[in-house]
């Protein structure tokens, strides 16, 4: 039970990171982007490429940092991958979503995002192969935190949780302390008023994609560190991430953070009563529960 709870918190840390970008994009661009989880794949795979590259160029970077399976090479790769993924998100928006929006309406964007998800996922499969990859081939040993009840935690998981919380705190500071953050929130609330006060809408939309892509990349890499990297990871993560945004209330960054942890914990606790095969259904059950009890989520506001 305790083990499930702890595992759930760890899963929650990367679900939250993924959900933040999704909820921001949904709020500002007003469409449900079903290709958002593919940004996690792009992030995970580009980090894999950089990681291998640095390890072969500078073997010293292949040294592990402390008890982690993380290396210096991977640490640098995370930063580069955030940039690459953010840039990909901006380009996908510029060349696909914006053009579809001009031709049709919100619904067309949702369809287009499904199409993009299908393309990205399968192109990754074609380039990197369908089998799973790992950042490190070594087996990471879990630390025994407690024997009764038995509680095992891997050092990597602790790192993932702390790093995720640090990133979320930085985002919180940006949103609550900087005029850039105020501009983002202003655009989300009232785009034309924000423009009238000198906010450049295009630049803010690009910023949303960069933030969403950057955090998504970290989420994907952390998922890869915790499990493995596969071309279909986006397909498996898209529903839990959407569930996190709905639980938190679409448009709320803080809701997405909380929603991510709630979905992560619930999906793991559900394993106590449900056979493990059913875990992919848990996010859907959570969506149903939220829609029944509190349709606008924990922090969402009614908007049609």
């Amino acid at each position: 039970m305790i083990q499930h709870l702890v595992d759930g918190i760890l899963v929650g840390s990367f679900l939250s990171l993924g959900a933040i970008g999704l909820t921001m994009a949904m709020h500002i661009l007003r469409f449900a982007n079903f290709s958002h989880a593919e940004l996690l794949s792009i992030g995970a795979y580009s980090a894999l490429v950089f990681d291998k590259l640095f390890e072969s160029l500078l073997p010293i970077l292949a040294e592990k940092i402390g008890p982690l399976s993380m290396t210096g090479a991977l640490a640098i790769s995370i930063v580069l991958s955030m940039a690459i993924t953010g840039l990909s998100a901006v380009l996908i928006d510029r060349f696909i979503f914006q053009r579809v929006r001009q031709k049709g309406e919100e619904l067309s964007m949702v369809f287009a995002s499904f199409g993009m998800a299908l393309i990205i996922r399968n192109v990754i499969g074609l380039v990197f192969g369908l089998s799973a990859e790992l950042y490190s081939q070594d087996i990471a040993f879990a630390m025994v935190v407690s024997r009764d009840p038995l509680l095992l935690v891997k050092p990597d998981q602790v790192f993932v949780l702390i790093a995720a919380l640090v990133l979320m705190f930085i985002l919180h500071l940006v949103l609550s302390r900087t005029t850039f953050g105020f501009s983002l929130r202003a655009v989300a609330e009232n785009p034309s008023l924000a423009q009238v006060h000198g906010v450049n809408l295009k630049r803010m939309i690009a910023a949303v994609w960069i933030i969403g892509g950057g955090l998504g990349a970290v989420a994907g890499i952390f998922y890869g560190l915790s499990y493995q990297i596969t071309p279909v990871m986006g397909r498996d993560l898209v529903l839990p991430i959407f569930a996190a945004t709905i639980v938190g209330g679409i448009g709320s960054v803080y809701g997405a953070v909380l929603g991510g942890f709630i979905v992560g914990i619930a999906a793991n606790l559900a394993l106590v009563i449900l056979p493990s095969g059913y875990s992919p259904s848990v996010p859907f059950l959570m969506i149903l529960a939220v829609l029944l009890l509190r349709p606008h989520g924990l922090f969402g506001e009614a908007r049609t």
Partner: peptide, 26 residues
């Protein structure tokens, strides 16, 4: 040129200070 719309002319989710900081951005 500045513009004061009829409705929805402030950002309700920001504090007064944040609204003004945003307007003072430039």
């Amino acid at each position: 040129i500045a513009y004061v719309p009829q409705t929805d002319n402030v950002f309700r989710t920001l504090t007064i200070q944040q609204n003004l900081d945003l307007a003072l951005k430039t």
